[in-house]
Amino acid sequence: MSTPLYQLKAEFFKTLGHPARIRVLELLSEREHAVAEMLPEVGIEPAHLSQQLAVLRRANLVVTRKEGSNVYYSLTSPHVAELLRVARTILSGVLSNQAELLADLRSSPGERGRSA
């Protein structure tokens, strides 16, 4: 019996569920990077970055190539970068709606001075 698609999707999104992994994918959406280049951008310890990169490799979201002593990472598919762009668009809309709601709450004259 095969794994249901919704379960595979949930596992996929769990893989994306760490800020360091998202940051790595954002960087790799721009171009390939060596590990040393990513360290200051991601802001975590080298061993932790290595662990996060291993998670992304196991999920087949990134691939590596070695050049001399450097290991370079890149995305396996441009669709990963597209997914990050779509997530940004969704979040922008959500935050915009929340900002509008907050502005409405602050400007409601009947609600001023009342406790919530």
Rank of each mutant, 00 (worst) to 15 (best):
M1Q: 14
S2P: 12
T3W: 00
L5S: 05
Y6K: 00
E11H: 06
E11L: 04
E11S: 13
F13K: 00
T15G: 01
R21M: 04
I22K: 05
V24S: 03
V24Y: 02
L25M: 08
E26V: 02
L27H: 11
L28R: 14
A34K: 09
V35D: 06
E37M: 03
M38F: 06
M38H: 08
P40F: 04
P40K: 04
P40M: 10
E41M: 12
E41C: 09
V42L: 08
V42W: 05
E45P: 01
P46Y: 04
P46V: 03
H48T: 06
L49P: 01
Q51T: 15
Q52C: 04
Q52F: 10
A54G: 08
L56E: 00
L56G: 00
R57G: 05
R58Q: 05
R58E: 08
A59M: 09
L61P: 00
L61V: 01
L61H: 04
V62W: 01
T64H: 03
K66Y: 07
K66A: 12
E67V: 13
S69A: 12
Y72L: 14
Y72C: 05
Y73L: 06
S74E: 11
S74K: 06
S74A: 02
L75W: 10
L75V: 05
V80C: 03
V80W: 03
A81T: 12
E82H: 02
L83E: 05
L83A: 13
L84S: 01
L84M: 09
L84A: 02
V86E: 07
V86S: 05
V86H: 03
A87E: 07
R88L: 11
I90G: 03
I90Q: 06
L91M: 13
L91K: 11
G93L: 12
L95K: 13
L95Q: 09
Q98N: 14
Q98I: 11
L101G: 00
L101R: 01
L101C: 09
A103C: 14
D104T: 07
R106M: 14
R106S: 12
S108I: 08
S108G: 07
E111N: 04
G113Y: 11
S115V: 07
A116D: 12
A116H: 10
